[in-house]
Design a protein around this nucleic acid. Structure first.
Lengths: 115, 115
DNA sequence: CTTGACAATAAGTTTTGACTTATATAATAT
DNA sequence: ATATTATATAAGTCAAAACTTATTGTCAAG
């Protein structure tokens, strides 16, 4: 479970639109498998499998409540991706070519911010 | 090219460690295909194919210089992912009441393993 | 103790992805 | 023109992903 494999798992988890939709739903609060499955045309096992992927990526955690297994968002995975993307973002801010630079600073001035 | 398919492409592009390494290299500045291929044991066509994926995701752009086709980072894709992740991050910050965590750890302890 | 609801797992199918080798194109140098 | 360098495309292979249906495990209610 090194950092790279976490990123593999996390980014590839988000590559699937169903899983992004599940996360978006969970961003509103805890939900059971059935609740998560409802909006989709997929079967319940399919959703369970997606959830397994999301858990493996550290993006979601499971709780036990009777026969239910409500899920909620987990910080771990989101933070890992966030940090990696921050690296790219930083590089983009630093390396942009002249044109980008001019355009970017013009944009920023509109908001009263200066780099 | 709607927003969702951009996200599909962008996240799935980042799911591959070779492609993340390519992006990390490009974060240091423009590079040709051969330069990008050098650190890997893969063949040149494999790298060209990875670059095609990255371009499709709007993460990388191509320039023409003689027979060379140097690549550099592009903002578009990074920003799209960034915004999506921001949504999750926000949800996590919002839901980060200690109550959730306390409940979670209580559940965990209560799990007394009865068969 | 049986039943029904909730969820996970198994096994099979079909797409999709990441490579390979071989070949093609395009600009540059000889 | 021909060769060389840089890259792209084509075609095929193999593994992994995303589903499906069928089945199983587990709890809680009657």
């Amino acid at each position: 479970m090194d950092a790279a494999s976490n990123l593999n798992a996390a980014f590839s988890a988000l590559a699937d639109p169903t899983r992004r939709a599940i996360l978006a739903r969970l961003a509103k609060g805890e939900a059971t498998v059935m609740e998560l499955a409802a909006p989709f045309e997929m079967t319940q096992p399919a959703i369970s499998q997606h959830l397994k992927v999301l858990e493996g990526a550290g993006l979601v955690v499971r709780r036990v409540d009777g026969t239910k297994r409500p899920r909620r968002l987990a910080k771990a995975g989101v933070e890992a991706m966030d940090q990696w993307l921050a690296m790219l973002r930083k590089a983009l801010e630093k390396n942009y070519d002249r044109l980008d630079e001019v355009l970017a600073s013009m944009e920023k001035q509109k908001r009263g911010e200066k780099r």
